[in-house]
Design a protein around this nucleic acid. Structure first.
Lengths: 157, 157
DNA sequence: CCCGTCCGTAACAATTTTTGTTACCCATTA
DNA sequence: TAATGGGTAACAAAAATTGTTACGGACGGG
């Protein structure tokens, strides 16, 4: 396709929050998360905003604030993240409506909507098999770094 | 999401070819298909080109040429169309690589690639449950037009 | 109270992707 | 030879995605 990277960024941020939490760090700032993503704090807020709305994370203001998990990492599935982050269907319908006086153009949209709805359910079903904690454990195990924890990264100047 | 409309356009065109074939018409021109889509012939060629490569349709040149099904509509699944039309994964990875010196940034990409690969398989599995003939029958039945066949549409001037 | 931290949001630019359109070439058929 | 019709390149227009700056408001510590 490939669509967008919202799910990737959100999962990345959640894994990072989970790892920091394991090491006693809670309340990472958007800048600190952005440092890991090589991005900037506004992009992080855009990515995590829907997760806050969905109740998966909390955001505290002021010193000592920042982002924290509101649900333990083992109970957040990628399907939860997907549902929070991706509003619409997997595939788009026509860019603009087809001819309504054509038998196909007249009736195809609702049929495809049904199909795409089922595809969305299939995606959710597959994503539900993975959790943030599971992804984190897998990546730490399969692709370990010599120094597994070097502290919260410092944003580059 | 919603990604792009390539699958929708391709399925629409195939349904239209299948319906025309049922009425004895073979070899629709790109202009005629474009008329149903309210689009233009180049867009149709772009949409059907991959299907020709995949062996699902044929394209003849010159008068009496045009597009025809190469496989009967009941044997073309939406998964076939999807595989022909959508090259990459369902979700994108990071817009640009994350920090390699971060435990999460270092190892998350391969793990997510695996997950996304399985998601792609789930999508294919769901799409495989539908065929062009099935979609066509469903839309004709659920959303019939007073005049079910008014001939091949005439491209608007 | 004052100040620095930090999220929330709007606004804007830059980039990429998608879609629409024009133009020209080559093949085919009558 | 002329008309039809796909193949492709090139370009423009539109939309989505991403990056960035700016500013307001909430919070905590001196």
């Amino acid at each position: 396709m490939a669509g967008n990277s919202r799910l990737t960024v959100a999962v990345h941020a959640l894994c990072w929050l989970a790892l920091a939490e394991r090491h006693g760090h809670t309340g990472l700032s958007s800048d600190q998360i952005a440092a890991s993503l090589e991005s900037n704090p506004v992009a992080v807020r855009r990515a995590l905003g829907p997760l806050r709305t969905a109740g998966l994370v909390t955001a505290g203001k002021g010193p000592g604030g920042g982002w924290s998990l509101r649900v333990e990492a083992a109970r957040i599935s990628l399907a939860d993240v997907y549902a929070a982050v991706e509003p619409g269907a997997v595939f788009a319908l026509h860019p603009h409506p087809p001819r309504p006086d054509c038998p196909v153009g007249h009736g195809i949209a609702p049929v495809l909507e049904d199909v795409y709805e089922n595809v969305g359910q299939a995606v959710i079903g597959e994503l539900a098999r993975h959790t943030i904690a599971g992804v984190l454990d897998t990546l730490l195990e399969q692709h370990p770094l010599p120094m597994p924890w070097a502290g919260v990264p410092v944003p580059r100047p």
